[in-house]
Design a protein around this nucleic acid. Structure first.
Length: 212
DNA sequence: TATAGGATTGCC
DNA sequence: GCAATCCTATAG
């Protein structure tokens, strides 16, 4: 990653096994050069959704108008609306045509906190502005209008950035908020971050942290 | 065309 | 604990 590299090499970052991409995302930055200014957050929690054989993946029932971006090139943003209120941001992984993605669930606000607050009237503390997939999109001002954008392009307004910081302590757990395939340990988070989403019982250090 | 439910959040 | 609110998938 990412900005100093070519579109081809950025594409290669996304075009790998989803669980590897998940692990590599923790501690990286999600940046959005939004209409009202530059926003950035340090990613602390993601989940993997992998293929039509994953019952919890939106591609579980095959291609449709809703999930078509999942079948696009790695690095493609896939943003959908949930519960009629919120949006969730994913980016596509693996091979072009294979439906898999990483869901961004939480980040620590780094740049543009005032802009985030202007996007979302809220009483949340700073550390919680991007804590949860709905909050992340709301504070960033991301909607389905940005779905399908190519985050691997060097001129993309939405992209990942590597600030070459030490790798954080990464913990894995079952995915949360779903009812199917809850046995898969496809959620990854930085156990040292106060911005991880979910109840406290799902944010702490685990002794049985598996590796990818 | 009708209806059920969802990768959530915030307030009662 | 539950309502809010809308889009999609599925059934009729």
């Amino acid at each position: 990653m990412l900005r100093t590299k070519t579109t081809r090499s950025i594409r290669a970052f996304y075009g790998r096994p989803t669980l590897e991409v998940c692990r590599d995302c923790i501690g990286k930055y999600i940046v959005y050069e939004s209409p009202i200014g530059r926003l950035a957050g340090r990613i602390v929690e993601v989940e993997a959704y992998i293929g039509e054989s994953d019952p919890a993946c939106h591609a579980a029932t095959g291609p449709s108008s809703r999930n078509r971006h999942l079948y696009g090139k790695p690095g493609t943003a896939y943003i959908y609306k949930i519960y009629g209120f919120y949006c969730c941001l994913n980016f596509v992984t693996e091979l072009d045509g294979f439906p898999a993605a990483v869901l961004l669930r939480a980040a620590e606000p780094i740049e543009g906190l005032d802009l985030m607050r202007s996007n979302t009237p809220t009483t949340l503390s700073n550390s919680k502005l991007l804590s949860g997939p709905g909050r992340l999109c709301r504070s960033f001002g991301l909607t389905r209008d940005q779905s399908g954008c190519d985050m691997a392009r060097r001129d993309s307004l939405l992209y990942l950035e590597d600030r070459h910081e030490p790798e954080p302590r990464i913990v894995v757990s079952p995915r949360i908020g779903i009812t199917k395939a809850t046995d898969r340990l496809w959620r990854f988070y930085d156990s040292g971050s106060s911005s991880v989403s979910g109840p406290a019982s799902l944010r702490g250090m685990r002794t049985a942290a598996a590796s990818v």
